[in-house]
Amino acid sequence: MRAALGGDADAYRALLGSLRPWLVSYFRRRLKGADSEDLVQMTLLSLHEKRHTYDPASPFLPWIAAVARHKLIDYVRKSGKRVHVELDDDIVGDDSGGLPADLARRDVEVLLAQLPADQARIISLHKLQELSIDEVSATTGKSPSAVKVAIHRGLRKLQALVGGKPAETADE
């Protein structure tokens, strides 16, 4: 998206192409009808017209999820249909199947960059490279309990950054 803001048409075309399946699944899940194709088109048009409101320093997926949610609510208002709209859209929940992996990866990098370097490294080792707490502890030279605390606090901070409610993380 950053490249698209700069005018790179190829990157933009690739982005739109990779977003479409996710949008199709997003609207199908909620509308269960033929109108979901129209909504995908409307969302892509809105993405195009309002692309300058994406902040290049922020994760992209919460932005496009908010655009899609806005279009859905607008559609429901106009058509008077009843659909399921989350009050607090959880984009990594049941929609994760169609999420473009490269976009998600880039968002994780953006978010991790906002944490202190040490904390980001510990989370990256444990959650992305899937090392155990003991292995992370050995790699970083910190005690296992310090590693656990860093992960717990880091994840809470990440959740706050994407606007989610801080929840208990079960796998620490």
Partner: peptide, 10 residues
């Protein structure tokens, strides 16, 4: 949309 793309100032 890709053809219509122009650089956009954030």
């Amino acid at each position: 949309l890709a053809r219509d793309l122009k650089p956009a100032k954030p």
